[in-house]
Design a protein around this nucleic acid. Structure first.
Lengths: 189, 189
DNA sequence: AGTGATGTACACCGATCGGTTTTCTTTTTT
DNA sequence: AAAAAAGAAAACCGATCGGTGTACATCACT
């Protein structure tokens, strides 16, 4: 048996923090996090320096899975335009889940309101990575101004997840054609 | 003298609530709000049923001023396209203020995470009003699908204010051309 | 001057916050 | 089996949360 039946305390804490802060917001209490993780507060404070660091670590841990769930495979042979569209198809399908509350990294930055908070730094980096992906694909796709297009796509990504996350917009059949307009205008074929 | 030297307790509370929740988030304490307003807690609880209602009332009070600061004059004789662009010029110039933290109504909805919260209802209505404005102008401007365009513009509005609000994007020279692309694609001349 | 309303100041309520300490039990190591 | 390390449970810390109760000052209206 190579798979543990029960993840480590550290992993359970990170998982609980990711789940609960996403659902309830970053103001969720330490007590609730530890209870959900089945870990004592004492142990939590031996594993993490404090709430801020736990929060940052939980966002960071999720980052690779989050980005992986959004981005297409590194080289799937598809055209840049399709690879960009893939990201927006993913967020569209994610938004169909009633538990969807928008991009956790955007929410964290908005809720924290402190760019120096460790979790804000992690969130910023995740967004920067997404923009970098867009920029690379835009370049690959022959966009007239790849940087400009990448920023537009990130803006649309955040706007779409924010609005879908608060239940104000329904992305299916809406987001893809909107993105297509920007890709067309940028000369990505 | 028709102007009071000192606004009423109610007005000072609404003002303080608007300012502090925008700067610090909706989790700001009642104590801090009352202290900033120079009003006792006792008086606050005679004027408002509780924190939720104070918060909702403060968002509502700001709503007309917020929308008025964004929208062009009711009939300024300009073309629909210019009237739509006006809104994005306004948010662009607002975002230059270092105190800018994005649209307070979007932030409130994201932070509260409860669509039934009185303040969420107010915020939702403000956004619906903005979308209505876009839709009316889109129709006036001859958009092929006015509703579709209005939703796109609201999405861009929220994405732009969110990203500018967390300091991730700088709207000047970026937002206007992005909106222009959508207007062009929708056939608004 | 007397009276009631309004409002401030402040102690107080139970609950919870982030964080620490102590005690006891479980697990691991030897 | 004995010893040692780890962790869970829970009390506890001071501070703050939303909200109340009480006492005292200020005001307008007769």
């Amino acid at each position: 048996m190579t798979t543990d039946v029960k993840p480590s305390s550290r992993e359970r804490l990170l998982e609980a923090a990711a789940t609960l802060t996403y659902r309830e917001g970053v103001n969720i209490g330490i007590e609730a996090l530890c209870k959900a993780a089945g870990v004592s507060k004492r142990s939590m404070y031996q594993l993490f320096a404090g709430k801020d660091e736990l929060l940052a670590a939980s966002l960071e841990r999720r980052a690779s899975a989050y980005v992986a769930g959004l981005l297409p495979a590194a080289d799937d042979g598809r055209a840049a335009r399709d690879r960009i569209a893939h990201v927006f198809e993913r967020v569209t399908s994610q938004s169909a889940d009633p538990e969807f509350r928008g991009c956790p990294y955007l929410s964290a930055e908005i809720e924290l309101k402190d760019p120096d908070h460790p979790a804000s730094r992690v969130a910023r980096q995740v967004k920067a990575d997404l923009t970098s992906f867009f920029r690379a694909e835009a370049e690959q796709g022959g966009a007239g101004d790849p940087d400009f297009l990448a920023r537009q796509l990130t803006l649309v990504f955040d706007g779409a997840s924010a609005r879908a996350g608060i239940g104000a917009e329904h992305l299916d059949g809406f987001l893809a054609p909107t993105v297509a307009i920007l890709l067309d205008a940028a000369g990505v074929r």
